[in-house]
């Protein structure tokens, strides 16, 4: 019975989860993604070679349809490459089965979507707890950490709220708190500000800057220059290929006093 119910036994985690093997957090070698839509095959990505080091803050830019999301989904282990290799922390994920990929997503990757993707009718707190639930963390620890994370993104008082009771910016902050739940080394965000107004977008990017400063590797997809300006490296895509890849001097995040959401305060520096 135990094995069906799950979570009662505790297995040792595999090495590819526990070890940080490589300085190159992401290494893509001749990566190709082909979408087979029956009649015609669409080349989503054409032989991408790319390395992102541990601790970088990268923006991926490009026109709509240039392959940004395709890349992010592969980086996030949500999708698999058609050809080539993707080494995440030195491990080729192409060879992994779906449960191994689940484990990777759970421990190594925090993914932030344009459309937030919170689970409806489930409180902010429970949403943030979810990755820890799947990591079999105990209830007390889960809740404690979820509250900390929500406080950190300035939603300490909104923990019990349902997603439909929150604004877009607040929802995205819940999603970020959730992405950080298991302290992943890699944070991926596919147009995280795409559905937000400028003020909320700036808040989100400041949050990413802060996380980057604390050592998390952050990759953000955007087609807005102002958003990309927060990052330290900008990679431009066109038609599934890398058009350019150049460093960027990041825009300084504002101080705490100028935060628009002064009542709640974004407690970036407190934690």
């Amino acid at each position: 019975m135990k094995s069906i119910l799950g979570g009662l036994g505790r297995k040792k985690l595999p090495d590819y989860i526990t070890d940080n093997i490589s300085e190159d957090l992401i290494r893509l070698e001749d990566l190709v993604k082909v979408y087979d839509t029956g009649a015609l095959k669409v080349l989503g990505l054409k032989r991408i070679n790319l390395t992102i080091h541990r601790g970088e803050f990268v923006a991926i830019m490009g026109q709509s349809g240039s392959g940004k999301s395709t890349l992010m989904n592969i980086l996030g282990c949500l999708d698999r490459p058609s050809m080539g290799h993707y080494y995440l922390d030195g491990v080729d994920v192409a060879a992994m089965d779906s449960d191994e990929l689940s484990l990777i997503r759970n421990r190594k990757i925090g993914f932030v979507f344009q459309s937030f993707n919170l689970i409806s009718r489930t409180s902010a707190l429970k949403n943030v707890e979810l990755p820890m639930t799947y990591a079999r963390k105990n209830k007390k620890l889960r809740e404690e950490r979820a509250r900390q994370l929500l406080a950190r993104v300035g939603l300490g008082k909104r923990a019990e709220h349902m997603p439909n009771e929150l604004s877009g910016g607040q929802r995205q902050r819940v999603a970020i708190a959730r992405a950080l739940a298991n302290e992943p080394p890699l944070l991926l965000a596919d147009e995280p500000t795409g559905n937000l107004d400028t003020a909320a977008s700036v808040e989100i990017m400041e949050l990413f800057s802060q996380l980057h400063k604390e050592g998390t590797t952050v990759v953000v997809v955007t087609h807005e220059e102002e958003i990309a300006a927060f990052t330290e490296r900008i990679i431009r895509f066109r038609d599934g290929e890398v058009l350019s890849d150049s460093p960027n001097v990041p825009r300084e995040p504002r101080g705490r006093d100028s935060a628009p959401d002064a009542e709640e305060g974004i407690e970036l520096r407190d934690t």
Binding site: I4, G6, L103, N117, I119, S120
Partner: peptide, 15 residues
Amino acid sequence: REIGIRKSLGAKTRD
């Protein structure tokens, strides 16, 4: 979609 979200957060087949 909910299933997709859960899987993206690390839910395994068995979960």
